[in-house]
Each structure stands twice: as C-alpha cells, then as structure tokens.
Design a protein around this nucleic acid. Structure first.
Length: 295
DNA sequence: AAGCTTTGACCTATA
DNA sequence: TTATAGGTCAAAGCT
C-alpha cells in the first residue's frame, strides 16, 4: 500500500468521515453501483431513503463491476461516495484504519481492492445470499480473491457482525412478507447509541441475514462489561450463525468508520498475522481454510 | 434486581 | 384515502 492511506485520501478530499449519514448518504454513490445492478431509492427530496430498496436479484456472480481499488480512488465518485464506503456493519468495516499498516482486513493484500467495492456495496444495502457467501468464502480461499466484489466481504466480519462485541437488545420480532423467516430487531444497548440491526433467521435458528442500521457512536464495549454478549458467550451464537448474508443498511456507518472501531481482539489477531493469515479460529471453515492456505 | 426476550399493539411509510 | 407491510413500543415474563 502506498504511503497515502485511504483515510488520508478521504480526508484530503474533504470527506468528513464523521459526517452524519444524512448529509452524504447518497452523494454520488448511485452511478457507481448502477453498474453492479444496485440502485438507491430516493425520497422525494432526492435523498436516498434510510431504508433503501433492496436491489432486485442481485447479480452476485456477475463481476461486471469489478474495479480496482486504485480505480476507485481515482474515481471522482470516491469523493462523494466515499461516505458510503464506510463501515457497513456497525463496526465491521473499520475503514478509518484503512491504511497499509492498519488494515483490519484479514485478507490478502489484493483483497483490499475488492473489499473496497464490497464496502461500498455494503453501504448500499447489498445483500448476500447464503450460497453467495459460501461462494464468497470459497472464492476467497481458493481463487485468491475472485473478482466478484460480493465475495470480498471479509468473512470474519460476517461473524463479527453477529457477535461484534457490542451489546444488542432485542426489541421486536416480526414476520415480514418478503421473507419467510422472521426478523428480529435489535438495538445497541449502549446509552445514546442509535445503532440497530435486523437479524433474519431461519426456523432452524440459522441467521440468514443481518441488516445493520446506523452506526455506533461509541467504541466497542469491553468484553468484561457485558459477558452475555461477549465473544465467549457468543460462541454459541457463532456456531449457530450461518453468515448467509450481512447487510449494511447503514448509511450511518460513516459514523462507524469515524469512530474507533475497537476490533481489539480481532485486529490484534489479524494485525499480528500476516496478510491472509486469519487468526480467528472461531470463524467459519472458510476462514480457517484461508488461514491454512496463507501459512 | 437488573437486564433480556417475547409478543401483541401501535405507528408510519408506501403503493 | 385506504390497505398493507415494515418497524417500533412497551408490558409481561424469564433468566
């Protein structure tokens, strides 16, 4: 990675990562993703709705839009859409640390290229199907990070999202029409934090989709604070978690990207590891495989 | 006792 | 304007 970090580029381009999503939620991201079959629903005011529309059959396997990270950086869209490239998952995308030395990604260097669009797409409420994620992991492990940007979602992140170290309180559950699986609604338990997530789980308990809304306005709580949601106790959840999809419906993620994502355990592991050497043993097989291959 | 989940009702946005 | 769907509230029960 060059001496210029992505964060630097963002800041130098006037992008305020701390900006509220409402301020930039849209700004230019549309055209970038239209190619990928994405679109954002806009409100009458021209701003995309918080609840952006789900793209129609997502061309997951279509890699018509795989662009290089450098392209992204060079793209004028970056300036405006970079906001949306933010950490999709309430912390799952510690973009702020997106520089050579601080790369949270546990993927190979080239994954940076793909993870970038992945972020963007995530910010645009991209959804991944179960099979897609499996493909994702598979590709990551076997095809040295295929070109499909959907495949670039760091797998570790997926489970991070379900057990991201934050405290979540379930405040509702609803059976929605467009999905036969019930949705559970969670709020971050941190005071004044408006972060929410919607977890769609199948009857067998497997999580089929996670949608994040809003970013955390606080660092990840210490594990000691809430053992019930800590990694240790989340092992079960992880076991249950079939990361079929992680959606970042969160424009607000910009906040996330701005705050210090304390991926403490994760980052420490990943950072001390070589690229691609994933050290998350609790993660899914795909990750483990990746790690082994990286060794 | 505190915090969490459950669940039906209510609210709001959209077609 | 109305019906419907999605999201949220809040009381009750549970851990």
């Amino acid at each position: 990675m060059s001496s210029t970090s992505f964060t630097d580029l963002l800041s130098s381009s006037g992008v305020d990562c701390y900006e509220k999503d409402e301020d930039f939620r849209l700004s230019g991201s549309v055209s970038l993703y239209q190619n990928g079959g994405f679109y954002q629903e806009r409100t009458g005011s021209g701003l995309p709705k918080f609840k952006t529309a789900q793209p129609p059959p997502l061309p997951i396997s279509q890699s018509s839009h795989h662009f290089a990270f450098s392209d992204l950086l060079e793209s004028p869209l970056l300036l405006s859409s970079s906001h949306t490239l933010i950490s999709p998952t309430t912390g799952a995308f510690p973009f702020q640390g997106f520089n050579g030395s601080d790369l949270p990604w546990q993927l190979q260097p080239q994954s940076q290229l793909q993870s970038q669009p992945s972020n963007a797409s995530s910010a645009l409420q991209e959804r991944y199907g179960v099979q897609d994620l499996h493909k994702k992991q598979d590709l990551i492990a076997t095809q040295s990070f295929g070109s499909d940007r959907q495949m670039k979602v760091p797998s570790y992140m997926v489970s991070r999202n379900s057990n991201d170290g934050y405290g979540w309180r379930k405040y509702g559950q609803k059976q929605v029409k467009k999905s036969e699986n019930p949705r559970s609604y969670f709020k971050c338990t941190y005071p004044n934090c408006v972060s929410k997530k919607i977890v769609e789980s199948a009857s067998d308990g497997q999580i089929t989709e996670i949608i994040y809304k809003g970013g955390h306005n606080h660092p990840k709580p210490e594990y000691t604070k809430r053992p019930s949601v800590s990694v240790s106790s989340s092992s079960n959840a992880r076991r249950m978690f079939n990361p079929s999809s992680v959606v970042s419906e969160t424009h607000d993620q910009s906040e996330n990207s701005s705050i210090s994502f304390d991926y403490s355990d994760l980052e420490q592991k990943s950072l001390k590891s070589e690229y691609g050497e994933v050290d998350e043993e609790e993660e899914q097989p795909g990750i483990k495989r990746l790690k082994r291959e990286g060794e």
